[in-house]
Computed example of a mutant assay.
Amino acid sequence: MAAPTIAIIGGGPCGLTLARLLECKGIEYVVYEREESESENSNRVGGSLDLHPETGQRALQEGGLFDEFKRYARYDDPVFAIADKLGKRLVELGHGRDAPEIDRSALRHILLDAIPKDQIKWGHALASVTAGEDNRPVLRFANGAVLSGFKLVVGADGAWSKVRSRITQVTPQYTGKSFLVSKIAHENPLYETTASKAGAGSSLSIGSGKYIMTQRQGNGSYRVSFGLQVPENLFRNGTGNLQDAETTRRLLLSDFYADWSEEHKDLIRHATDLCAWPLYTLCTEDMGWESVPGMTLAGDAAHLSFTGGDGVNLAMTDSLKLASKIAEHGTKSLDQAVQEYEADMFPRGIARIAESKVMEDVMHSEDPQAFIQLMSS
């Protein structure tokens, strides 16, 4: 049986948005996802995303999914409070902003439901990409499958993209920043206090080169992120052993947040489900590779940057632009479509990486003023 025209590597928001848009346009595709099933609990499924009108929301509109999105979207959660390390609230932004929050898991559910089940191949972690005799990609998966015959392979496989290595030799660099993600669930003794103080949306406290962000999730629980400037392997080599939550809490309280308010320290004392997330980025100079026939990149695989809230919007825009170029040129001129898509994508990627560097710096300032000025502008 002939291979589908397009192989999409990665079943995150970027890859699934592209799949839905190609489905709407009647273009053959298949998605290869490393997770074993839709129900597998992945770190990527956690967290909340704000979708913007001209990017993420537009992609959903083009895919005929906007009404479904509105069922899950939280229009009262764009509120963003900024405080200092002593707990003093300085400003509250975002009231009335058209950037509703949606849980990543809910967005994924919407997209998966809009794609035929047989178009997604679960349990396919890409191991490598090589060139076949026709110089087109050959995909080798960790489960032993070796597949070829695609006219286009789209790497939507995130920060450590295997597809990227066949297109460019650039690799992500550690930013010097990591965050620890935790949660305050309904059954947590601190929940009522957190809910009464944090309320809707997100709150960000900045001080002494670090931050704490509290964000309400769709089920009413709170996701708490501790942003730190630490060595890359601090939470991998035993110094900050996440398997021992009490040791990690003591480390945070003694070495990082000792001079913060008791309100902030309580978030540490009651944090559960701690997970480390080292942050990596590509550089602006990494954008602009020479187009490779039969392959391209989208989302973090193309322009990984410091987290700042716009990543999913940019990724979904990539999918929208790529699907439009494919439809415009047809499947017989995919290389032309890719060249035009990449020429359009590079400036967006450069701008996002540059903006995220500024965001990275101000979120790790000595006090919140630089961040407030940036957000107000």
Rank of each mutant, 00 (worst) to 15 (best):
T171E: 11
P189Q: 10
T171C: 02
C24S: 14
F371R: 01
G158I: 08
A370Y: 01
L252C: 09
K332S: 11
L297K: 02
K70H: 01
W260C: 14
A131Q: 12
R44E: 14
L16S: 04
A327V: 02
P13L: 13
A131D: 00
L21M: 10
I82G: 05
A315M: 11
A83S: 15
F346V: 15
G349Y: 05
K332W: 04
L51Y: 07
F371G: 08
R269G: 13
Y191R: 02
G299P: 02
T331D: 04
M213A: 13
I167W: 01
A145I: 10
V138Y: 06
L322V: 12
D335C: 08
R216E: 02
G176Q: 03
P4R: 13
M213G: 04
P172Y: 06
L267T: 08
A2S: 15
N237M: 06
G94T: 11
G10R: 10
D335L: 06
G87V: 11
F306G: 07
G199I: 03
A343H: 11
M375D: 03
P78S: 00
D118A: 14
G309T: 14
D318C: 10
K117Y: 01
P78K: 02
M345G: 06
H109Y: 10
D77G: 07
S305G: 06
G176N: 08
N219L: 06
D134I: 01
C14M: 09
N241Q: 10
M287E: 11
G309Q: 05
F235D: 04
R58L: 15
V170M: 12
S128K: 15
D318H: 01
A131V: 05
E187L: 13
R216S: 10
C275W: 03
A298F: 00
C14K: 01
E232A: 13
V138K: 03
G87W: 03
E262K: 05
P116R: 05
E342W: 11
S365A: 15
L204W: 00
R249D: 11
G149Q: 05
R108N: 01
Q339F: 04
A125W: 03
Q373Y: 04
E328Y: 12
T130G: 13
D300G: 09
T331S: 09
R269N: 11
P100R: 08
L22M: 09
I27Q: 06
W277T: 15
E285F: 12
E28C: 13
E23F: 07
I9R: 01
E192G: 09
E285H: 10
A245W: 06
M287W: 05
G149C: 15
S376D: 03
E246A: 14
T194D: 00
G238V: 13
W160T: 07
E33H: 10
E92L: 09
S305E: 05
A198Y: 00
L49I: 15
Q169R: 07
